[in-house]
Write a protein that binds this DNA or RNA. Structure first.
Lengths: 163, 163
DNA sequence: AACAACTTGTAAGGTCCCCTGACGAGTCCA
DNA sequence: TGGACTCGTCAGGGGACCTTACAAGTTGTT
């Protein structure tokens, strides 16, 4: 182990990813709770993160969030109850509804993306901007392969969201 | 993104970390379930991941897992019930008990570390061994700062990690 | 030696977040 | 027009955490 150049596989990669993830979320939540959007929690992110102009169908939220439609529905119910989102009928399909952000929802989204960008920037100062950019690039590549359902569709790409 | 030097902060870093994490866990669970240790779930990892020779106090498990002692206790109860772990009195403190792995527990730990190492190796083939090593190095550095409570104490470092 | 302050683990109860199964309403296709 | 499929929802359940409270044991102070 010691004095070896061999790849050291402890702690396991999943653990490292989780520690980094948890650190971001803890910081994010801490700041979010101080804001006027303190009632938003990480679960709500699946909506804000994937939102686009015309709105999202529940099925899309579920797919991109890698969860069931029922779970996605619960999240949306909650956002609607709190005034961050609303359901409007989808003109293209009378079965479907489009989940859209309210004005307050958009403000929260913008604020959330802002906070996350700040955290990433701070990490850049702490660990080296280029290295963090490299981390991001690597993760984007991995995500494109391992979680294609969640990646932006380029032109569709989103604006501003918390997680 | 293209033609821009500006840092592209969508999707947010937490999302990317989560996608990568979920991908590993999904693969890990898929393979673990096929093994004779199919009743182990990700939550149990906080024990296996941190285990050392002499055993772990519940308080340590909780600290390193970033959870309450009650939650850690629940996990340990479950592992004990399934025959992976046992509690032995701590000779140094009569209040405390040391959580130790049974023989079966050690086999499961070895197998788990092996599978995770395999996954990381496969990622190396898929994305470039050096780049994945770089990812790990960056994450280790981040974890050492952001989650010091969870990082190995050097000499104490882990056990049955394969090769 | 004795007592306050603290730590170790447990008990009880609750919350959040996600799941499975079943279903009515609407759409697509042969 | 009927069958197969998809959209969202209802009902029910469980895993993995949490908070509060406490008894047993240890440590530090006087």
């Amino acid at each position: 182990m010691i004095g070896s150049k061999e790849h050291q596989q402890y702690p396991p990669l999943n653990g490292l990813l989780e520690y980094a993830f948890d650190a971001i979320i803890a910081e994010f939540r801490g700041e979010m709770e101080k804001s006027e959007f303190g009632d938003l929690r990480p679960t709500h992110g699946c909506v804000f993160r994937n939102m686009r102009k015309r709105g999202l169908r529940l099925t899309e939220i579920a797919e991109r969030g890698n969860m069931t439609k029922q779970s996605a529905g619960e999240v949306v119910d909650d956002l609607v109850a709190r005034g961050y989102a609303e359901r409007v009928p989808d003109p293209d399909d009378r079965r479907a509804k489009l989940v859209c952000l309210t004005e307050r929802g958009e403000e929260a989204q913008t604020h959330g993306f802002f906070l996350l960008a700040e955290i990433e920037k701070r990490w850049g100062e702490r660990y080296g901007a280029e290295r963090v950019a490299g981390l991001r690039a690597m993760l984007e590549e991995i995500a494109a392969v391992e979680a294609p359902f969640a990646m932006p569709v380029a032109a569709e790409a989103a604006p501003a969201a918390p997680r």
